[in-house]
Every structure is written in structure tokens, then in C-alpha cells.
């Protein structure tokens, strides 16, 4: 029983990280049709930014950790917004080239991170509570799982509120459905493009700081590692669907944890799940029919 609880909560924590990456990917794809390979780099840079903050100001204080989260998110958002403005925008409506540009950016930035911080993982510190465990139904659950889950839930609520109650949110929801018609109402959707990149980048940057707590280290490959599963989550959930991304993130991560524990090949199970979903529902769980 306690094993199951532990696997479940750990899976939810991992799902939270997947969601923080996949939410941005899904929104960007939904609105712009761009598959963003650089998204992992947003996460990695956010993680390193948070780590630098903690390293300089003292890792064990909660205030510094909060600041690290904010800085990670801000750095992720700024990096993402610049990516949109300087690279993606120039290739407006040329989807394949847009993907290629993000591929190039991903390769170049990971190499740059390696050059700057070294290619080996840096083990990290944090507030003492995060290293501890909490007893849930007899299972000693590492506290950083709760933090990741809480943060992801807050981000989900935040994005939902933003989409529902702001004018930009309205534009984004409409644009995901029919971008041409949004421009035909006199709205410059390109502002919304920069914005979804920034929002996605902020979520990824935040995810970076949390992921480094979850795994216990930062490394230049942190983002790429999560990105592939976030892609899978996005496809399973349905490209462009935020709720789909949330549901699929939990599904994929929990399944992965259980399969890893009982069989050792969780990652393969995830790929099989993807194949199954595509055979039964090519548009994903909550995606619109293409």
C-alpha cells in the first residue's frame, strides 16, 4: 500500500513537471502551429538561473528559494519572448522552418550551457524541508513532490484564469480555433504569439527550478530530458488543449512510475501508450479532429 502511495505521489510530481513544460508547448502549437524544440532550453536556463541565485544568496532560506523560482520563471519568459521576436517571427507561417530554427537554437544553447556550466550535473541545495519526507498513509514521500504538484496546480489555475478572463486570453483561445478569423477582426495576433511564448517560457523556467529540486541536480540536459516526454504528453493530450496536457501529464507520469517500479521499462510503456492513443484517437485525448 505504502509503495503504491509513494509511486502515485512521485508520479504526480513528475506529471507536474511534464505539465509545466507541456502546457507551453501545447499553447504555442495550438496558436501558432509551431513545435518548439527550444522549450527544453527555456527550462534549463530557468534551472541554472535559479541555481545561480541560490548559490549566491544562500540555498537554505525559503526567501531565496522563492526568489529563485521567480528569477527562473522570469528568465524563462524573457528567453522565450526573445526567441519568438528574433527567430520565429521572421518565419511567419512557415511552420517547418520555424521548427528548424528552434531545433538549431536548442542544439546551440545546450552546447552553450555545457560550455558555461560544464556538462556534468551540479548537485543542488535547497531549504531543508525540501530534502525531508512527509508520511502519507505510511509512505515517506519526499517533500519536493508536494512542491512540484502545488506549483503545477497553481500554474494551471493561473493559465486558466488568464485565458478565461483577460482580453489576451480571449484572443489566444480564439486564435487556437481559427487564427485567420482573429486577424480578420482587426486583431494583431502576433502580440499574442509573443505572449504565449513568454507564458510558456515562464512555466518552463519555473519547471526548471522545481525539476532541479525533484531530481536533485541541474545539468545542461535537464530540459531535453523532460522535453521528449512533454512532447509525448502534448500529443496524447491533444495538440493545443491545455486540459488535455494536464490530464495526459498525470497519466503518462504515473504510468511511467508504476511501470518503472514493477517492470523497469516505464519509458517504453509510455511510448506504447502513445502508439495506442494514436491508433485509437489520432487527434489525442482532448484534441480537436484535424
Amino acid at each position: 500500500m505504502s509503495t503504491i502511495v509513494l509511486l502515485l505521489i512521485t508520479g504526480l510530481g513528475l506529471g507536474a513537471l511534464y505539465f509545466l513544460v507541456a502546457s507551453g508547448l501545447s499553447l504555442i502549437y495550438g496558436l501558432m502551429g509551431v513545435l518548439n524544440f527550444a522549450h527544453g532550453s527555456f527550462l534549463t536556463l530557468g534551472a541554472f538561473a535559479g541555481w545561480e541565485v541560490a548559490r549566491r544568496l544562500g540555498a537554505d532560506s525559503w526567501g531565496v528559494f522563492g526568489l529563485a523560482l521567480v528569477v527562473g520563471a522570469a528568465v524563462g519568459a524573457a528567453f522565450a519572448a526573445l526567441t519568438e521576436l528574433l527567430l520565429v517571427r521572421r518565419l511567419y507561417e512557415r511552420h517547418i522552418e520555424q521548427v528548424l530554427v528552434t531545433v538549431g537554437l536548442a542544439l546551440a544553447t545546450v552546447a552553450l550551457f555545457e560550455g558555461t556550466w560544464g556538462s556534468d550535473p551540479e548537485f543542488i541545495e535547497g531549504p531543508a524541508w525540501l530534502r525531508g519526507t512527509t508520511d502519507v498513509a505510511g509512505a515517506p514521500v519526499p517533500n519536493d513532490r508536494f512542491l512540484a504538484i502545488g506549483a503545477a496546480v497553481l500554474v494551471l489555475i493561473g493559465i486558466v484564469l488568464f485565458l478565461r478572463y483577460t482580453r489576451f486570453g480571449l484572443i489566444i483561445r480564439a486564435g487556437v480555433e481559427n487564427r485567420a478569423m482573429v486577424t480578420a477582426l482587426g486583431i494583431d495576433v502576433r502580440k499574442a504569439f509573443t505572449l504565449v511564448f513568454a507564458v510558456g517560457g515562464a512555466a518552463a523556467g519555473l519547471g526548471g527550478v522545481l525539476a532541479s529540486q525533484y531530481f536533485g541536480y541541474v545539468s545542461p540536459h535537464l530540459g531535453a530530458q523532460l522535453l521528449i516526454f512533454a512532447f509525448i504528453v502534448t500529443v496524447i493530450g491533444g495538440l493545443g488543449s491545455l486540459t488535455g496536457a494536464a490530464v495526459a501529464a498525470v497519466l503518462v507520469a504515473v504510468l511511467q512510475q508504476f511501470a518503472n517500479y514493477y517492470w523497469g521499462y516505464g519509458d517504453l510503456v509510455v511510448v506504447l501508450l502513445l502508439a495506442l492513443v494514436l491508433l485509437v484517437r489520432p487527434s489525442g485525448l482532448l484534441g480537436r479532429r484535424a
Partner: peptide
């Protein structure tokens, strides 16, 4: 027509 199917009537009008 190209109304935004997932948006409410009020939201469709507000957007315009």
C-alpha cells in the same frame, strides 16, 4: 460564418 465555436456568444462579440 466562422464563429469561434468554443467561445460564448458574448465572447465572440467582445472579441470583435
Amino acid at each position: 460564418r466562422e464563429v469561434f465555436a468554443g467561445l460564448t456568444v458574448a465572447e465572440n462579440l467582445r472579441l470583435a
